[in-house]
Simulated scan of single mutants.
Amino acid sequence: MLPASYATGTAVLLAIGGLLACFAGYRLFRIVLGIYGFLFGAFIATSMMGASDAWTLTIAALAGGVVGALLMIAAYFLGVGFVGAGLAALALHLVWRFVDGSPPAWLLVVVCVVGALVALSLVRWVVVLGTAIAGAWTLIVAGLALAGDPAAARAATAGDVWILYPLGQTGGQSWQVAAWFGLTVAGVLVQLATSGRTTRRRGRAG
C-alpha cells in the first residue's frame, strides 16, 4: 500500500479523476482511461511490493501507474468493451447479493463477455453511464478521505485495489449510496447535454 503520508495527495488525484470521469467522461475518454489506468497500475504495483520503505513504494507506484496509463490509452478501442464488462460485472454482483455469496466464475466471465459485446454496439451510452458511475464513486471515496474518514483514507492508500470497487468497505451508509446515485444521474445528464452540443457543432462544421 502507499505510505499513509500520501493519503491527501492520492485523495486529491482521485477527486480530479472522479470529476473528469463523472462529468466529462465521454468527451475526455482517453484522458479518463489514462488517469484510471495510472491509479489501478499504481495500486496493483504497490500491493505487490508488500511492506517496503516510502521511496520504494513511491517508485513502484509511479512505475506501475505509468505502465497502467499507457496500457489503458493504448487499449482505447478496447476501453468501451472494458467499461461494458465492468458494468455487467457490477450488475451481476448487485443481483447476486440477494442470492448470497459470490457468483460463480464461469457466470461472471459469460456476463462480462456479453456486457462487452453490448457495449460495443452502444458506445456513447455505455461510456457515459460507465464513466459517470465510476467517477461518482471515486469522488465519494476522495471526498471522504479528504474529510478524514478512516475507511476512505485506507481506500486512498490501499494495497488492495478492489477497495475502490463500489461494493467495497467504505462505511456502507445509505447516504453514500444515495450520493452515489445522485452524482451518477447528474454526471449522465451533464455528459449527455455537453456531448450532444459537441456533436451538433461538429455536424454544422462538416
Results as ranks from 00 to 15, higher is better:
G135W: 06
A91T: 14
G86V: 04
W180D: 13
A24R: 12
F98H: 13
I140M: 06
V12Y: 03
A155C: 09
L139G: 06
A147F: 00
V80A: 11
L78C: 09
G18Q: 10
G34D: 11
W175K: 07
L33D: 07
F98Y: 09
R202W: 04
V109A: 15
P3T: 14
I35R: 02
A7W: 09
V114T: 11
A155D: 13
A69Q: 07
A153N: 02
Y36M: 13
L39R: 01
A15Q: 08
G79F: 01
L57H: 07
V83E: 09
G65D: 11
V185K: 04
M49L: 13
L57W: 05
Q191I: 04
L146H: 08
L183E: 10
G86A: 02
I16K: 07
L2I: 12
T138Y: 00
W180K: 05
A205F: 03
A88D: 07
Y165Q: 14
V32W: 01
V126W: 02
G101P: 02
M48D: 12
V95W: 06
M1I: 07
A89G: 10
R204E: 15
L167T: 15
V123A: 11
Y165I: 06
G41Y: 00
A145C: 04
L87P: 05
L2F: 15
A158G: 09
C22D: 12
I133S: 09
L183P: 10
G171I: 00
A136S: 14
T184Q: 10
A45S: 12
L78T: 10
L192Q: 15
D160M: 03
A4R: 13
T170S: 10
L62G: 08
Q191S: 10
G130W: 04
A153T: 13
A74L: 15
T198D: 12
L87E: 06
A132I: 09
F98P: 01
G37E: 06
G25T: 11
L94K: 05
A51N: 15
L183R: 09
G196Q: 03
S5M: 10
W55F: 13
G9E: 08
R204C: 01
D160I: 05
V66S: 06
